[in-house]
Every structure is written in structure tokens, then in C-alpha cells.
Design a protein around this nucleic acid. Structure first.
Lengths: 350, 350
DNA sequence: GTTCGCTATGGTAACGTTACCAACGATCGA
DNA sequence: TCGATCGTTGGTAACGTTACCATAGCGAAC
């Protein structure tokens, strides 16, 4: 058998044909289901396939007219974030159900990299694209620039781009979360979030501000910290809030990274002897594991990134079905749930 | 321009050639760097490329002899686990540095799915494979079955398969973690982990048992719970441990999922009024965010999944370089760090 | 002025695959 | 018995690309 696999090259259909003593066409037909191929020849072919370790060359296959690549291009901003990991999982699952495979790229929030990735994906003849846009210019995302490859945006929308999108109910979630703080009697509420240019950051701030406005409260700019992308900067922002003379009694955190940063700062203060009663309550957009074990009350605005991914893939695949391209762009907002403020774990000190 | 993009098909090099008034070869040469092409023709070609939105068909390109696909196949067990998300990120980063793209599949710990995925990857002419094996039979992973496509195993090894692998120092980490508990005076130590058939589960148990053996302690089978793959079953296992008449005073948790489950059970008991002093200390293999905020002492055996991914990709790419295939199989063990047991956050009850 | 050498350009074939058509033999009805 | 039909098989061409070869043009060197 060693001479069969010599050279490190994949065997071709021709070699299988020779090995089985038939023509390449008979091999092709057998692998396509075996219609109008004598059973004994099919067996011979399959034996040859097994023996040579033959796999059809999908790239060559996709070259033929009318054939598709079976690939979906997925570009996300940060695979290391569990949120996007779950999102990618959801996309992969649905794609796999429909016999598609995903090509994955991480943009790292870099528009140039996003451009490269999308160009590469199109070059690889992907049937469609799923993108968490990293912001910035959108001309490379216009339908004609994509060669009519359908695209679905996830988590964020791009201004001036009329394509399918799956979003969270950012505004509603932030509104409800903030309102729950107001109803608990808080009036000085801090805001931790992304820069304004990030779509979700903007939307979540909007929900936050709307809830305040309903009570006639003008957001105090001193309490609004929104330049934190990472845990460390979020922690620093939280420190600034807590060091204010008139520190907030509650903090709305617009995403996971900010929540973790805020909690780390709270942990630091507790270990330094701070009184838990003087530390703010937190509402966090984005759930995280073990929120229930936090020393201060943490309510979470929860959502399912995996479902978001599944929905994005479903939108995309529906476009790939016959006639699916003629449907106008759709916008899906996935619901979020506000957990009832859990009672914090109170540990008796010694 | 609308008539140019009509039909939803990608433009071909031929169409670009016609549009630019040159031959396909001139287009090809221009796109390949433009050696021996007059500058004015290059400009014409690039203008046509821009206008038509042309992207080279990578699948057709890879068909030509001597060409490679630029694809790396990555199959992991659970993308939803932040650990594997970071792992995939590491692989993607290094692959991208070397101009490769990754095709990603989620096996869900299902050997049949793993088989399918790998067959599909080979059919797509991937240059190499990165696999977190899901256990079970390994015949489909033998080099000759893979058509000499190099493979790198990650996190787990496969018995009887002599290929590159990147592992954590499971045994050493578990040993050191367990020893730290013993040094703190614990003698009844529970074990939460994966089933024995999972490679890491076996190795981490080995480190655990070795540390005990050094002190002349025989592991009490009642304290060893190792069938938990998910948070819920881990929580149930923790409950069984804590309900024992002779409950352990410390618990070694062999992975993230078990740690979260164990902590959730601890949280439940605290909210039900349990005394924190009666709850066990925990050593967790796998770090998690906010471990420092837990109400019981949690020491973590930390490691960097992203680095693990980067190293796996590096091993694979080195095999793809000239002569790289002749190197004997390598085994890399990534170091882990044991955090100093942090002081738990103690909150004064009211 | 002829030849040489170089650059620039285009035609052709092949990569692996399968839709299409042609051809073969067998079966069947008339 | 003969033509028609059907099941089965194989040859050919084309998908988009580029390595290779051929050729045309042009300046330099003798």
C-alpha cells in the first residue's frame, strides 16, 4: 500500500478509476449516489476509494458550472471573547446542518483586516458571509463590491448598508436594566461602555439615557465612562467613578469586559477593607458565569450568543435558497432577558 | 456598472482581460506582481479589476500543479467553551501571519462528526489539520488515511498515533495543585473531573493521585467524581460530595466546567445559610475570570489556551515548510502556573 | 546590417471534476 | 426477426487559472 500513497499527493479520480478497472465517469457516478451503475462495479469503486484513501477534490468540483463551494465566510472581531465563540458556534451548527463549512477569520476590530478577509473569502467562492463589522468605512461591504455574495451582519449594523442583520435588543435591554436600578431607588447611576462609534455602545447608551430621561434625570457626564474596550481600562474607569466625591450608588455596565473590570475593582476594594454597603450595585449587559456569586448585587441583561449565531446563519441560508435573493433586507432583533436582581452571597466575616 | 455585475456570478480573469483590452495572461501576471508587464497595461488591468470587482478564484488557482490551498482545517470539540475559543484564536492568528486561512468545524465530542469533518477538510485540500481529538477509535487519523496531510493534536493525545501534539502539563499542574492543598493541611480531598477515557481527565487524575500517594494517602473512591462533562452534572457531583457524612475539606476540580458547577453548588448553599467555614477550598485546573471574587478560596492552575493554539499552528506550519515533513513527531508540553491561593473576598453580613 | 539578447505579450495545455452526448449490449413488443 | 427502448459505460469538453513555450519588437554590439 505504501506505493499507492507515495508522493504525498492526494489520489485523483483517475487513479481510482485505474485501480478499479473502470472509467473516471463510473467512479464519479458511484460517488454521486450510484444511479445507473452496476452494483458489482460500485463495490469495486468503493474498494478502490478505501484502499487509496481517495477524497473528492471539492475545489475542483466547485469549479464546474452550477456548483457551489459549500463554504460560508465568517469574520468576527474577537474569537477570544466567549460571546463571539458562542456566536461562531451557532453559525457553525446551522451551517453544518445545511452541509456547509465555515471559513473563519478574526478581524481584531481592524477595518483593514476585515477588508482583506472578505476579499479572500470571496476569492474562495464562499456562498455567503457572516460579519461582525468592526466599524469604519463600509464601501467594501456594498453588495456590488461583494459580487452579489449575500452578507448578514451580526451584533452591529453598518450605517448606509441595507443588508440582513441580526441584533440584540440593545436599546430595550439597557432601558429595562437601567429602569430596574431607578426603581430600586438609585438616582446617581454610572455608565461604563464602549466608545460611541461602536454600534452597540451607542445603542446601549441610548437605552440607558432614555430610562433616565423618563424620570427627568439628565445623565451626568462625569458618571459616563465610555472608552473602555478592555478589562484593564474598564477597571480604571470604575476606579475613577468610585473615587468621585459624589460616587454613583449603582453602575450600568454596557458589556462583559466592562463588567469584569468593574467587579475586579470592587474586589480590590473589598480586600482592602471597604464596606460592601458603600459599593455600588451593578447591572451588566451580557451575562457571565457565576454572576450569582458576586459580593455585590449584579443583575444581568442576558442573551444567547449561540442563538444569535444560529439566527444569522439561518438568514444567510434562506438567501441561498431559490428565490431567497429577491427578499428585501431583514432586521432581526433577538430578545434579551433581565434577571431578577439576585441576592448577593453574604459571607460572615471572621 | 450594473450590467457588469449582472447574473450574480463572479467575474473571471477572461472578463477582466476583455475589459482591459489585454490577454488573460497579462491580467494574471499583473495580479502576480506585475513582473514584465508594461506599467500602463498594469494600470488598465487594475482599473478593470476594481471596476468589475474581480477576485481571483482561489479554488481554481489551487487546482494548478504545485499550488496549495492556503487552508488549514481546525476541528475542535466545543467552540462554546471559552478555552477552545481562545485556542482557535491562537491558531487563526498564526495561520493568518503565514497567509493561511482556517476552516473550522465543531465536533461536539462526537467521533463520527470528527471523521466527517476531517474527510471534508481533506477534500477541500487543506494543507494541514489541527485537531482536538474527541476520543474513540483513531484509525481515521493514521497518516496514510490522511493522505499525508500533516496533523497536529492539541490538548489531548491519541493512543497509537505518532504525530505532533501540543499538550498542557496536565500531570504536573494537577500534582502541584493537589500538593498545595495537602500542604495547607487538607487530607480529605475530593476530585471532580472528566471520564477516564478523556485524555486530559486521565492525566489530571494521575497528577492528583501522585500527590496524594507521596503523602501515603490512597484516593478514597467515594471522593472521586469523574463523569461530569457539563456544569449541571458537575454541580450534582459537588452536591454528592458535600452531602457525605465525611465530606471533603477541599476539592480538586480538573477543569473549568467542573469548577463552575462546584462553585454554583457552593453559592446555593451559602444563600441557604451555610457557613462558609464549612465549605471546601477549591483548586481549579483552568482559570476563569473573577476567580478572585469567589467566597471560598479558589486557587487556579492557569494556562494560556491562545498560546496553546499558537504553538499548535507553529508546529503545523513548520511541517509545511521545505523538509518539515521529515522531522520526527514532536511533543510540546505547555507550562501551567499555580496561582497563590488568593484570600477570598469576605463580606460582612448585615 | 545582421545577429544577439532582452522585454513584453499571447496561445495552449493541464490541474480534477462532472454534464452531456455517443455508443454499446440486452430486453422487449410487434 | 427486427426496430425501439432502456440501462450501462466511456469519451469529451469546460469550469478559471497559470506555467510553459512561442513570437514579436527593439536596442545594442559587432
Amino acid at each position: 500500500m505504501s506505493e499507492l500513497t507515495q508522493g504525498g499527493r492526494q489520489p485523483t479520480i483517475k487513479e481510482v478509476a485505474v485501480h478499479a478497472g473502470v472509467s473516471p465517469m463510473t467512479v464519479s457516478r458511484t460517488l454521486a449516489g450510484g444511479v445507473n451503475v452496476r452494483p458489482d462495479l460500485q463495490e469495486k469503486v468503493l474498494a478502490a476509494v478505501r484502499e487509496l484513501g481517495y477524497h473528492r477534490n471539492e475545489n475542483a468540483r466547485s469549479l464546474r458550472p452550477g456548483q457551489t463551494s459549500g463554504l460560508i465566510g465568517v469574520a468576527i472581531t474577537n474569537l477570544g471573547n466567549p460571546y463571539y465563540g458562542n456566536f461562531a458556534l451557532g453559525v457553525e451548527e446551522v451551517a453544518a446542518e445545511y452541509g456547509r463549512r465555515i471559513v473563519l477569520g478574526n478581524t481584531g476590530e481592524d477595518p483593514a483586516r476585515e477588508r482583506q478577509l472578505i476579499a479572500d473569502f470571496i476569492g474562495r467562492q464562499v456562498e455567503g458571509l457572516v460579519l461582525v463589522p468592526s466599524g469604519g468605512a463600509s464601501d467594501h461591504l456594498q453588495p456590488e463590491r461583494l459580487g452579489d455574495v449575500p452578507i448578514v451582519l451580526a451584533s452591529r449594523r453598518v450605517y448606509g448598508l441595507d443588508v440582513d442583520a441580526v441584533l440584540l435588543d440593545d436599546v430595550g435591554g439597557a432601558y429595562r436594566g437601567t429602569r430596574s436600578l431607578l426603581e430600586a431607588g438609585h438616582t446617581r447611576i454610572g455608565f461604563l461602555g464602549n466608545v460611541r462609534s461602536v454600534f452597540t455602545g451607542q445603542r446601549r447608551y441610548e437605552g440607558f439615557a432614555r430610562a433616565l430621561a423618563e424620570r427627568g434625570i439628565e445623565p451626568d457626564e462625569v458618571l459616563v465612562q465610555r472608552d473602555q474596550q478592555e478589562v484593564d481600562s474598564a477597571r480604571a474607569a470604575m476606579r475613577r467613578l468610585l473615587d468621585l466625591d459624589d460616587a454613583p450608588t449603582a453602575v450600568f455596565s454596557a458589556n462583559n469586559r466592562n463588567t469584569v473590570g468593574a467587579l475586579k475593582e470592587i474586589g480590590r476594594r473589598l480586600r482592602a477593607g471597604a464596606d460592601v454597603a458603600e459599593l455600588p450595585a451593578i447591572v451588566s449587559f451580557d451575562n457571565f458565569e457565576l454572576a450569582e456569586l458576586m459580593p455585590v448585587p449584579v443583575a444581568v441583561i442576558d442573551h444567547d450568543a449561540r442563538q444569535l449565531g444560529r439566527e444569522a446563519a439561518r438568514l444567510l441560508l434562506s438567501r441561498l435558497s431559490p428565490g431567497g435573493r429577491r427578499v428585501p433586507a431583514r432586521l432581526v432583533e433577538m430578545p434579551v432577558t433581565l434577571s431578577a436582581s439576585p441576592v448577593p452571597v453574604v459571607v460572615s466575616g471572621d
